[in-house]
Simulated assay, not measured.
Amino acid sequence: MQFRHQKVSVTAPARLHMGFIDLSGALGRHFGSIGVALNEQATRLTVTGSDRRSVAGPSAARAEKCLTRLCEALGVSDALEIRIESAIPEHVGLGSGTQMSLAIGAALNAFYGLGLNVRDIAQVTVRGQRSGIGIGVFEQGGLVVDGGRGEHTATPPLLVRMAIPEAWRFILVFDRRGQGLHGLQEIQAFQALPLFPRREAEQLCYLLLMQALPAIAENDIARFGEVITRLQRSVGEHFAAVQGGIYTSPEVASAMQWLAEQGAVAVGQTSWGPTGFCMVNGADRAAALIEMAERKFAAGGTLAFSSASARNSGGLVAVE
Rank of each mutant, 00 (worst) to 15 (best):
L213A: 11
E202A: 11
L204D: 00
G225Y: 04
Q203E: 08
R230G: 02
E200F: 00
L193D: 08
R223S: 11
A201D: 01
P197C: 04
Q203S: 12
N219C: 13
L195Q: 15
D220K: 07
A212W: 01
L209E: 04
A201R: 00
T229Y: 09
Q211P: 01
F224M: 07
L204H: 02
R223P: 01
E218P: 00
A217P: 02
R199K: 11
P194I: 10
N219L: 08
L209T: 10
A215S: 14
L195Y: 11
I228V: 15
L213N: 06
Q203G: 06
E226P: 01
E226T: 14
L209V: 14
R198N: 08
D220P: 02
E200I: 05
E202L: 13
E218T: 12
E226K: 08
L207G: 08
A212M: 11
R198A: 14
V227E: 03
A212Q: 04
C205E: 08
Y206P: 00
G225D: 03
E202W: 04
L195E: 15
A222C: 02
A222M: 03
I221S: 01
A222E: 12
I216C: 06
I228F: 03
D220G: 06
D220Q: 13
V227I: 15
P214A: 11
R198Q: 12
R198T: 13
R223D: 06
E202C: 10
L207M: 14
L213P: 04
Q203L: 12
E226I: 02
I216P: 00
A201F: 03
T229F: 04
E218I: 02
A212G: 06
L204N: 03
A215G: 08
A215E: 07
Q203W: 05
V227L: 06
E226F: 09
L208Y: 00
E218G: 11
G225Q: 02
V227M: 08
L213Y: 09
Q203M: 07
I228E: 00
I228Y: 02
P194D: 07
C205S: 10
P194V: 07
E226Q: 14
G225P: 05
L195G: 02
E202N: 09
R199L: 09
Y206S: 10
A215M: 07
E202K: 09
E218M: 06
V227G: 00
L213G: 05
A217R: 15
C205K: 11
C205T: 09
P197V: 01
G225K: 01
L213S: 06
A217W: 05
L208D: 02
P197K: 03
L195N: 09
R198K: 15
V227D: 00
R230M: 05
V227P: 00
F196L: 03
P214N: 13
L208M: 14
E218L: 10
E200C: 02
Q211E: 14
